[in-house]
Computed example of a mutant assay.
Amino acid sequence: MLEVTALRWALTIALILGLLALDLGLAAARPHVVKFREAVISSILYIAVAIGFGLVFAAQVGWDFGAEYFAGYIVEKSLSIDNLFVFTIIMTTFAVPDRYQQKVLIFGIALALIMRAIFIALGAALLSLFSFMFLIFGLVLIVTAVQLYRHRNADPDVQDNVLVRVARRGLTVTEDYDGGRLFSRSAGRRAVTPLFIVLLAIGSTDLLFALDSIPAIFGITDEPYIVFTANAFALLGLRALFFLVKGLLDRLVYLSTGLSLILAFIGVKLVLHWGHGIDDRVPEVSTNASLIVIGVVLTVTTIASLIKVRQDPTARAHAGSLTAEDPHDSGRSR
C-alpha cells in the first residue's frame, strides 16, 4: 500500500491549485481567442508537467506505483477527449463568443476537479469498507461501455439538460453575454447571462463524466493519491488541448468505439479483481497489461479514424451518448 504523508498531499494540492490559478488568472485577465501557437505551447507544458511529476513520483515510491499513475493518466486523458466533444457541443449550442470560451473551460475544469475530488474520497471509502464495490464499479463500467457503443453515433442533447431547463424556467436570462459576466440586470430585474447557463451545462456534464471516470481509474489503481493526481493532471491541460484539437475532433470518428472498449476492459478487470479476492484461482490483469491494451486501443482507434476520414471526407465524429435514441433513426452516421 502506498504511504502518502500529509506534507506530500499538501505540496501536491498546492502545485495543482497553483497551476489552476495561473490558468484561470490568464483566462480571466485577458479574454482573447487562443491561437494555435499558444495552444501548442500550453499543451506541451501541461503534458511535460504531468510526465515530470510521474517520473519524480515513480523514482520516490517505486515504478510499480509509477506505472499505475501513468496508466491512470492515459485513461483519464483519453476520457477527457470525450469531454472536449461535449464542451464543443455546448459552446456551439449556446453560441459562446470565442473570447469567452477559455473562461468557460477554466471554470468547467475547476468544477470537474472539485467533483472528482469528492467522488474519489467516496470511492476510496467504499472500496476500503466493502470489497464487493469492485464488482459494482466493474458492472457499472461494462453497462456504460455497452450503452456508449450502442449510441456511439449520437451526441448528448444539451438543451434537454435538467438543470438548464429548470434554470431557464426559474431565472431571468439576458439576451447577450454582457462582457462575460455571470449576472446582470434586465428590465430593472436581477438576471443571469447565458454564460451562467453554459456553466450549469458544463457542471452537470462534469458530474456525469465523473461518475464514469472515477470507477474507470479505480480499475487501474485503488490508491486515492494516484487516482487524484492522474485525474488532476489530465484535466489541467484540457483548456489548451481544447483549442489545439477542436478542429480535429470531428476526425476521430471511432473515438467513442475505442472509449467503450477501454471502459469494458477496465470493467472486466475490476470484476476479475473482485473475484480474485474471493478465489486466488481467478486471474487478475496486471498494470503493465492494462497499459498495453489501452495504448493499442487508442492507437488503432486514431489510425482507423484517420483512414476512415480519408476514404470518406463527409464522415464526422460524435461524442456518444448513454441515453440517446438509435442514431440511425436520425439518419446520422459516420
Rank of each mutant, 00 (worst) to 15 (best):
R150A: 09
G123T: 09
F137P: 03
I120Q: 10
G123N: 08
R116Y: 11
A124N: 08
V146D: 01
A124E: 07
L148Q: 03
A145N: 01
L135R: 01
L148T: 06
A117R: 04
A117T: 04
L129C: 11
T144S: 15
A124Q: 08
L148A: 08
I142K: 04
L148I: 04
R150D: 03
S128T: 14
L129G: 13
V140M: 15
L127M: 01
V143T: 04
F130H: 14
S128R: 15
Q147M: 11
L135K: 00
L127V: 10
S128A: 14
S128K: 13
R116M: 12
L127P: 00
I118W: 11
L126E: 05
V146Q: 00
F119Q: 03
A145Y: 04
A145S: 09
L141W: 05
R150F: 05
L126C: 06
Y149C: 02
H151R: 12
F130L: 11
L135F: 11
M133A: 13
A117V: 05
L139I: 14
Q147Y: 04
R116W: 10
L139G: 02
T144P: 10
S128F: 13
L126K: 05
S131E: 11
M115E: 15
R152M: 06
H151C: 13
G138A: 12
S128D: 14
Y149T: 00
G138D: 05
R152S: 03
F130P: 07
R152G: 00
L126M: 12
A145P: 01
F130S: 10
V140F: 14
G123F: 12
L127R: 01
A124R: 09
M115S: 14
G138S: 06
V140H: 13
L129I: 09
M133F: 14
R150V: 04
I120E: 09
R116V: 13
L141M: 12
G123L: 05
I120H: 08
Q147D: 06
A124H: 12
A124T: 13
I118V: 15
F134E: 04
S128H: 15
F119Y: 15
V143P: 02
F137K: 03
F137T: 00
F134G: 02
I120Y: 13
I142A: 06
L141N: 03
V143C: 05
A117F: 14
I120G: 07
R116G: 10
A145I: 00
A121I: 09
F134S: 06
M115H: 15
